[in-house]
């Protein structure tokens, strides 16, 4: 499990970098459009198509890393109040549901990619093929499904042995008030 976690972490780090770089590209494109139009009366043809296709990279590639940082919004009130074993059972179920829906979405997104490829789906103005972006989305969701599945397994391990420190270390960090205020 630790090995899988390390591999996933490496992939997630690369992906969030690509997402960050794409955000910079969107910034550069939009700024270039504003300046080119404002100063030289020469708007960049098709920048709408380019930004449209760049958006999924900026908006989705960081999704799995966000899970490792516990950044996805949730309501942990009830879960946190449960006894340890019960908490891990509920958490495992929640992660399992996450793995299931992300796998489903990944397959659905993959079919969307297949149709885009088969039917030459492209953008209206520059006519750029959309299939690479759709494939990227399917892959991101598949990665997220694996990440969820790994966390589900870790929680299951903790159901068996709540004191398993090695398993606990694989989960997103859980800080306390004392840690932060010193």
């Amino acid at each position: 499990m630790a090995v899988v976690d390390r591999i996933l972490r490496a992939v997630e780090a690369v992906l969030v970098w690509i997402a960050a770089a794409t955000t910079a590209v969107i910034l550069a494109l939009a700024t270039a459009e504003i300046l080119a139009r404002g100063l030289f009366n020469a708007p960049i043809r098709g920048q709408l198509d380019l930004i449209t296709l760049a958006m999924p990279f900026a908006a989705i590639l960081g999704i799995s890393r966000a899970l490792t940082r516990n950044a996805h919004v949730r309501m942990p009130l009830v879960v946190d109040a449960l006894p340890q074993r019960a908490r891990h059972i509920v958490e495992a179920a929640g992660m399992g549901l996450g793995a299931f829906i992300c796998a489903v979405l990944s397959i659905g997104a993959y079919q969307f990619f297949e149709r885009a490829l088969a039917y030459s789906d492209n953008t209206p103005d520059l006519r750029i093929p959309t299939w690479p972006v759709k494939l990227m989305i399917s892959a991101s969701l598949a990665l997220l499904a694996v990440r969820f599945a790994l966390y589900a397994l870790v929680h299951l391990r903790l159901v068996r042995d709540p004191a398993d420190a090695a398993a606990e270390a694989l989960l997103p960090a859980h800080r306390t008030l004392e840690d932060v205020t010193e």
């Binding site: 997402a19 960050a20 955000t23 900026a58 590639l61 966000a66």
Partner: peptide, 12 residues
Amino acid sequence: LIETAQVSAMIF
């Protein structure tokens, strides 16, 4: 940029 990417992923 990385924080933006992560928060964007969460919001989207």
